[in-house]
Amino acid sequence: MAQSPSDTAALRRWRLILGRYAQDRLGGNTGFALDSEDWKLERTLDYLYDREYEQRGLTRGPGSLDPSQIRALDWLQRARKLFPQEVFERMQSQAIERYGLTDLLRNPATVAELEPNMALGKALLAMRGRLSSEMRDAVRTVIQRVVDQLMARLRHEFVTAVVGRRHRFRRSMLASAQNFDWRATVRANLRHYDRDSRRLVIERPHFNARVKRSLPWDVILCVDQSGSMLDSVMFSAVVAGILSSLPTVRVRLVVFDTSVVDLTHLAHDPVEVLLTVQLGGGTDIGRAVRYCETLVHNPQRTVLALISDFCEGAQPAPLFAAVRRLAEARVRLLGLAALDDQTQPIYDQATAQKLANCGMEVAALTPHRFAEWLAEVMN
């Protein structure tokens, strides 16, 4: 019985999804077979997803395209032509993150062909110490492109939230009772005086515009740079760069593991921050918070944002003591358990709860929500 075109299209899609092991069941008894264009897709998919079979102890079958038969750059160029952009970016991310296809990251020409995204930025940063010297310029270029993408996505959120919200606040307060200007109101409405009732009809009340002092806020970003925090480190560097450009914010950027490094002098340059941080190592949150305590000069206009998984590797008592002192000084304390697009927090909930008990507000937020939270605190 002949197959309908829709049946053939469905078989074709399933064959490409399931790979060569589905050939006999999908095509052997039905006469269905891949055409020449499909085989291009098949071979390109095989190059990447046959690694899944290898991870399960299966070997490549005859006709499969092993890494010795195709260079990573050739595969990238072929995949970009054959698949839609969204599919290609997902394949590239899986090649690096899931299958460890590090050949993609060892040749400057290949790196230049990669589509810049978070997955690529993370992979390059994680491998930075193992890359050859000739790769440095290529890595910097890719990291710059990834940072530019993040800045384009987040800048508007932070500028609108931190700067724009103040203007909305000011307008909403113009008509409050405490701003009522009775002298100007009487003077402007005298012509509406009703002699019979001996009442002044107020057609248009007048209010004084509140003058709000625009003293700058100090925002201290205290960022955990242990290996599990790579997403947060990337977003934190970008957030520091954005905040550094705002006239009413003074940014201090501190990164830590068991050591504490003040990168405030680089806060305006997210790329340089990312190429400077040393990912990995243990965690001493208490030491970092105690250092940040020394940076506080105007407690009531200071926000300390601790970005960490709260997995304290040192004795926790000094950490809690420092947080209590800062809270008593009226520093606004924010604890961010996650700072990425997915907001899938994996953190020490017991430590987070104890920090909250000491006066720190703790939440797991996306960068967009962090912008709103920061604006609420500063306004």
Results as ranks from 00 to 15, higher is better:
Ala2Arg: 15
Ala2Gly: 12
Ala2Cys: 11
Pro5Ser: 12
Asp7Gly: 12
Arg12Gly: 06
Arg13Thr: 14
Arg20Glu: 15
Ala22Arg: 07
Gly28Ser: 09
Thr30Val: 09
Phe32Lys: 11
Lys40Ile: 06
Glu52Gln: 13
Leu58Glu: 06
Thr59Trp: 09
Arg60Val: 08
Pro67Val: 10
Gln69Ala: 14
Ile70Arg: 08
Leu73Ile: 13
Ala79Val: 03
Phe83Asn: 07
Gln85Asn: 14
Val87Ile: 14
Ile96Met: 08
Tyr99Ser: 02
Asn107Ala: 06
Leu114Lys: 01
Leu114Trp: 04
Leu114Asp: 01
Ala119Ser: 14
Ala119Asp: 08
Ala123Lys: 01
Leu131Lys: 02
Asp137Ala: 13
Ala138Met: 06
Gln144His: 07
Arg145Leu: 09
Val147Leu: 04
Val147Tyr: 00
Phe158Pro: 01
Val163Leu: 08
Arg165Tyr: 09
Arg166Met: 13
Arg170Met: 13
Met173Gln: 07
Met173Arg: 10
Ala184Tyr: 06
Val186Ile: 15
Arg187Gly: 05
Asp194Ser: 09
Ser197Pro: 02
Arg198Gln: 12
His206Asn: 06
His206Leu: 07
Leu215Asp: 08
Pro216Glu: 09
Asp218Trp: 10
Val219Glu: 02
Val219Ser: 02
Leu221Met: 09
Ser226Tyr: 05
Gly227Asp: 07
Gly227Met: 10
Ser228His: 06
Asp231Cys: 01
Ser232Gln: 09
Ile242Lys: 03
Leu243Arg: 06
Leu243His: 06
Leu246Lys: 05
Thr248Glu: 13
Leu253Trp: 04
Val254Lys: 00
Asp257Glu: 11
Asp257Ile: 05
Ser259Phe: 12
Val260Ala: 06
Ala267Gln: 07
Ala267Ser: 15
Pro270Trp: 00
Val273Pro: 00
Leu274Thr: 05
Leu274Val: 09
His297Ser: 13
Arg301Thr: 05
Ala305Tyr: 00
Glu312Met: 05
Gln315Asn: 12
Ala322Leu: 06
Leu336Arg: 03
Ala337Gly: 14
Leu339Val: 06
Asp340Lys: 10
Pro345Cys: 02
Asp348His: 07
Leu355Ser: 01
Ala356Glu: 13
Ala356Gly: 15
Cys358Glu: 05
Met360Gly: 02
Met360Pro: 00
Met360Leu: 10
Leu365Gln: 03
Leu374Cys: 04
Asn379Cys: 11
